[in-house]
Design a binder for these strands. Sequence first.
DNA 1: TATTTGGCTTAACAATTTGATAATATGCCC
DNA 2: GGGCATATTATCAAATTGTTAAGCCAAATA
Lengths: 224, 224
Amino acid sequence: MSTVKKILIADDEPDILEIIQYNLQAEGFEVITAKNGNEAIEKAKRHLPNLIILDIMMPGKTGMEVCNLLRQQPAFKNTLIIFLTALSDEGTEVKGLESGADDYLTKPISPKVLVSKVNALFRRFSKDEPKIVKVGDLEIDREKYMINFKGNDIVLARKEFELLALLAGKPGKVFLRNEILNTIWGTEVIVGDRTIDVHIRKIRQKLDLDCISTVKGVGYKFEM
Amino acid sequence: MSTVKKILIADDEPDILEIIQYNLQAEGFEVITAKNGNEAIEKAKRHLPNLIILDIMMPGKTGMEVCNLLRQQPAFKNTLIIFLTALSDEGTEVKGLESGADDYLTKPISPKVLVSKVNALFRRFSKDEPKIVKVGDLEIDREKYMINFKGNDIVLARKEFELLALLAGKPGKVFLRNEILNTIWGTEVIVGDRTIDVHIRKIRQKLDLDCISTVKGVGYKFEM
DNA sequence: TATTTGGCTTAACAATTTGATAATATGCCC
DNA sequence: GGGCATATTATCAAATTGTTAAGCCAAATA
C-alpha cells in the first residue's frame, strides 16, 4: 500500500481499545482511538480515517447510531466500518450490516482474526475506484489529495480538492449547484450561494487554467 | 426532466402539508396529499407515487405502520419513503431507517433541506436515462447542456436550451403554446404571449437553420 | 496557554447574462 | 384592406455569477 491507512477505534473498554490498537499498529496502521460515540464522530470528522471500528454498546451513542450519522455525510459514504459486538446475537449482526457496516467482529477478539479481517477489507475495497484520475495534463490523486498539472504539484485545500475531483470525474457533465452541494456538503449543512463560486474561483486561480466553465442558471462543468 | 415525479405527502397538520406541497410544486413535482395513514395508503395505491413523505405521528396509522404495510407489497418495494418527525430523538431516526425508510426529516422543516433531500434521493436512485438526443445532424446533450450541430458546438441560454430540448424530444409533434408554458415555465409563473416567440426566434437565429416550424394558431414543432 | 496559520464561509459589491415585455413590423387569410 | 397571429427588435429589470476582503474557527506551533 502506498499510503499508511488510518483506523479509528471506538470502544468504552480501555482494555479492548489497547489490544486492538497494539495489534493494528504492529501491522503498520495509524491508529486513532475514541472512548465513546460522540468522541468517535468528532475524531472521524477530524482525521477522516480509512476504516472505523465501532463498538455497538457504548455510552452516549451506540455504534449503530454513530454509523448512521456518519453514513449520512458524503465524506463517509465510502469509509469502511466494522462493528464490534459482545453478543453473538445474529439479529444484531444482520441489523449491523443493514445499517451500513461493512463487516462485524464478535468479542472476545482474536488479534489474528482482527488483523486478517482488516487486511481483507482493505484489499477488497482498494481495487474498486481508481485513486488517480487523469484528464489531459491534469492528474488528480484522490489518495494523496494532490493535484499535478503539467508536472507541477498544486496544493488545493480539501473542499477545493473535492470540488475539482467531482467535476473532473465526469468531464463535460454539468453539475447542478444542488448536486454539488449534496455531494460535497451533504444535505444537512446549508451554505450560502456564493460559497461554491468562491471555491471555484480559488481552483481556477490555483490551476491558472480555465478548465471549469460556468453554465449560467445551471451549474459548472469541467472540460479541458 | 423527462417524466414528472409524483410525490405523496401524508401529515395530519394542514400547515405542514401546505408548506411541503408548495415547495415541492415549485420545484416542478406533482404533489398528492393525505391527511392520515389510511388515506396515505389508499392514495399511494391509486397514484403510485415515486416518493412518499410520511409523518411519523398521525391519527389512525403511524407513518411507520404505513411504511411497513406498503413495503410488503411488491408495487412499493422500490418506492422512496421519507419519514417526518418532530422528535429529534435519534433512536426514532434509527428505527425509521431500519423499518424501510430511505431517509428522514425532522421538524421544523427547512424548505431548502426538504427540496435538496428530495432531489438527492431521486438522483441517487434514478437509472440513467438517455441524456443525449440525436436528430439528424443535431445533437442535444442534456448532461453537458450543449447543442452540437454539424460538429459545431452551439451555446444556448437555459430557457432556449430547454425549449429546444422539449421540441426536439418529439420531432414532428406539435406542442401547443400552453403545453410549452406548463412544461418550461410551470403553472405558477405567468408570462406574456410573445415570450415564447422571442425564445423561438433566438433558437432559430443561433442554430442558423429553420428546424422549428410554426403551426399558426396552434403551436410549434421541431422537424429537420 | 498564547499565538499564528490556514481553510471555510459570508457579506458586499461589481460584472455579466438572461429573460420578459413593449412596440413595431410582417405575413396570411378572408 | 381589415383582422389576426406571429416575427423582430430594442430595451430594461431581474437573476445569476465573479471578486474581494473580512471574520470565524480549528489545528498547528511556539
